[in-house]
């Protein structure tokens, strides 16, 4: 296989990967379980309530623009936009960083 053809196939893999990632990103807000994750759930069951309440009200170190994968007041659509935006952001950063780091 020529280098050009192989590179072309890898671009196809990129497009297929992006399509799958975006499909998951769009579906995630509707399909994801609202239950707490393993760490939060463990905290809820083994940390005393008063201590946990104190930990939960303490503000995060940095305020996030789209905390909890949501946009304030925008409901499910806001969540879809947030996860899709994050997916594209990760894609862009990885691509640019990968291109910058790769062997010359």
């Amino acid at each position: 296989m020529s280098v050009a053809a192989s590179s072309n196939m890898n671009m196809k893999f990129l497009y297929a990967g992006i399509a799958i990632a975006l499909l998951i990103a769009i579906a995630a807000p509707f399909l994801a379980s609202p239950d707490p994750d393993g760490l939060e759930s463990a905290a809820g069951s083994i940390v005393e309530e008063s201590k946990l309440a104190g930990m939960e009200v303490s503000a995060p170190f940095v305020e996030s623009p789209m905390a909890d994968y949501a946009i304030e007041g925008q409901g499910k659509m806001g969540e879809v936009v947030a996860v899709v935006a994050g997916t594209i952001l990760v894609l862009g950063i990885s691509f640019v960083l990968g291109k910058a780091a790769k062997k010359k």
Binding site: L14, A16, G17, A25
Partner: peptide, 20 residues
């Protein structure tokens, strides 16, 4: 050849981490 694969995987992993 590998940069597009890395980028697609990173994007996919971000998305799937939103799917609890």
């Amino acid at each position: 050849m590998k940069v597009p694969i890395l980028a697609a995987l990173a994007a996919g992993i971000f998305a799937i981490q939103a799917l609890n």
